[in-house]
Computed example of a mutant assay.
Amino acid sequence: MPEPRIRTAQADDEEELAALDRAIWSPLHAVMPRPTPPYPPFFDDRHPPEDFLVAEAGDARTGRRLLGYIRLARPTPLAANAHVLQIQGFAVAEEARGRGVGRALIRAAAGLARERGARRLTLRVLGHNTPARGLYESEGFAVEGVLPGEFFLDGRYVDDVCMGRSL
């Protein structure tokens, strides 16, 4: 698979991103119930397109498709916390996993966070999501805290793992 192009999301990506989000839903990474119709909008006032980076394959001639996305947002509205950005959404299409798409999105998000003046990048990941945790660790994130049994998912209690890194 050729290297995906990483770009800021645009309003017309909404339908494709929403479909991707529904397709990859899993209790491995989702704390919300499986989406069912009627589906809410993917973009809204709290989740505008400019908060998302997307990985895109193809071109106008061959047809483009989105392989994944990552969302950066401020974890709080506090001025004392303005130097921190948080990954608050991350998805890679099943067929693109293990091909560097997720890594490219994380690296692009770190670069964008730096451009936006952030000194730290944080995230939260479910304790049983071993593949994601391994990817984050390989990109310099460290476990900074664990909320034991924070979620009850798929019949069992799951830890919420807080990770972060300096930029």
Rank of each mutant, 00 (worst) to 15 (best):
M1H: 10
E3P: 00
I6G: 11
R7V: 02
Q10N: 02
Q10M: 11
D13T: 03
D13A: 07
E14K: 09
E14I: 07
E15K: 13
E15P: 00
E15G: 09
D21K: 06
A23C: 06
A23K: 15
I24N: 03
S26K: 04
S26F: 10
A30S: 15
A30D: 15
V31G: 13
V31L: 12
P35I: 09
P35D: 12
P41A: 14
F43C: 01
F43M: 02
D44F: 11
R46D: 14
P48S: 12
P48K: 13
P48G: 10
D51T: 14
L53C: 04
V54H: 07
A55C: 10
A55P: 01
D59K: 11
A60Q: 13
T62G: 15
R64Y: 06
R64C: 09
L66G: 02
L66C: 08
L67F: 06
L67W: 06
I70C: 14
L72H: 07
L72W: 10
A73T: 02
R74G: 05
L78A: 15
A79D: 12
H83R: 04
V84F: 09
L85I: 06
L85W: 03
Q86F: 00
Q86V: 07
G89L: 04
A91D: 13
A91F: 05
V92L: 03
A93R: 11
A93K: 02
V101C: 15
R103E: 15
L105Q: 02
R107E: 14
R107P: 01
R107L: 14
A108H: 05
A108E: 07
G111I: 09
A113K: 13
A113D: 02
R114K: 15
E115T: 12
E115L: 14
G117I: 01
R120G: 00
R120W: 07
L121D: 01
L123E: 01
R124I: 10
N129K: 13
N129Y: 13
T130L: 13
R133C: 04
L135C: 06
Y136H: 08
E139D: 05
G140Q: 08
G140A: 11
F141T: 00
E144V: 04
G145F: 08
E150S: 09
F152A: 12
L153C: 06
D154M: 05
G155A: 09
G155D: 04
R156F: 06
R156Y: 07
D159C: 05
D160H: 12
C162A: 14
M163A: 12
M163P: 09
G164V: 01
G164L: 01
R165N: 02
S166W: 08
